[in-house]
Write a protein that binds this DNA or RNA. Sequence first.
RNA 1: GGCGGGGUAGCCAAGUGGUAAGGCAGGGCUCUGCAAAAGCCUCAUGCGUCGGUUCGAUUCCGACCCUCGCCUCCA
Length: 479
Amino acid sequence: MALHLFNTLTRSLQTFTPLDPAGKSVGMYCCGPTVYDFGHIGNFRTFVFADLVRRYLEFKGHSVRHVMNITDVEDKIIRRVRETGKSLRDYTGEYETAFWADHAALNCLRPHGTPHATEYISEIIALIETLMTRGVAYRTDDGSVYFSIEKYRGRGGHYGRLLNLNFDALRVGERVKSDEYAKESVADFALWKARAPEDGAVCWPSPWGEGRPGWHIECSAMSMKLLGASFDLHLGGEDLIFPHHEDEIAQSEGAGVQPPGQPFVKHWLHGAHLLAEGKKMSKSLGNFYTLRDLLAKGFTGREIRYLLLTAHYREPFNFTLDGLQAARTALGRLDECKRRLTEIAAGATGKVSAATISEGQRILGEFTAAMDDDLNVSKAWAVIFEEVRVMNAFMAVGKIEPNVAAHRLTICDQVFGCFGLTPPPPAVEAPAEIAALAAARLAARQARDFKRADAIRDEMKARGWVIEDTPKGPRLKRA
RNA sequence: GGCGGGGUAGCCAAGUGGUAAGGCAGGGCUCUGCAAAAGCCUCAUGCGUCGGUUCGAUUCCGACCCUCGCCUCCA
């Protein structure tokens, strides 16, 4: 079964084939955060999506090299640096630390490479020089350097790969900054921005004068440096399709560093944005959720991750607090099934019948088929929940052998691992005083003094513990 | 104005030219001293509206309505 992914380049589903002749190694770049503030749930949808792509490729046996940049120099950052009086490094360092904490809270695997724009200035300058040499970039009087789309086209470059562009209809001017008046053409974009007075100390020397990198060039320089001039996958949020990714292609291919016939990037994947409570997130509507906000409301990173992974990455998704509540319940159902299987599997001897193995393969096969279909997580979850139902039904009548349970658990682990949703270790033991109360209640119940037993139960609840009577005795849980 | 997504049960969300996955909520039941928890069962003659093609359309075509996004540094 082959993985099919939607490629923005062709706007169609394509079989994913790595550039690696052995078909094993995969290079993957995801546009990371601009560290000027805390990340919101929309940002993290993209990063969870990237993490899913990586995990699924690994699940399929690929060896993935995952790179995600940190944009640590940019207009908003410079403005905040000016406003706060902090140094660039202090300011961005704070938010980068917060970002990685959030990233980890969502159980996203740390990318293998996390390059910072400010640490690749020499590579960026070298790439711009190449573009100058090839005649597709020009310096303006103020010391900025721009990419010339016209020259790029003149050299056979195709600008407008990722979307249909109608230059005549572009509503030009609204967001063009005043310092870009010197551009030869409105569609040209900055590779190097000459230092402006308000930039303060944020600048680097260059052959064109002091300044700083344009927005797009860092991704070209860093991705090609770490993954090679031509690599497999490049992902990001859908808003980056234009201009960011379009410009990345132009710069990277304009430099002419790819092997003949090979593109800068083979597959472009873009994640859709999400709505919050049915509307575009906005601070004034009160539906602007940073990951921290959600954690502060008592939701776990795992619950948030699960919710983000219930919808297909290319569909707009409506993220709601109600949805998170539903996610908690659904995840609880999965965990409960796994917990019960674990209990039964304790008696396993390791012998597994051929029928058990083939049934397991059937389940994983259906899961894989769903995921191979452009990461159709909804379909994959349907496979899993259907299996949960079947296993629950068998367990309800005590008809699962320990060896079968143990084998099903290995499937659980693979699937949970692929989604990055492996259940946390069992909850902490109750403190001695709570355990003592539980014992007292049990004694009271056995004496059929239910009034007293119920009073103790209430007391425990007041202290934050609930008690559940199961056939195997009472279980303690945090309220 | 240009370009591109979406509109499927109370909510979230798959999917298909042949009669609607899954999750949450709701309802019923089992278990229980009572609970709680858990489990099982159940839950759309219907897929934005109106036309068309077809033996048959939610699925294809056309028009329209609603909604979201991008159109130069927003994931």
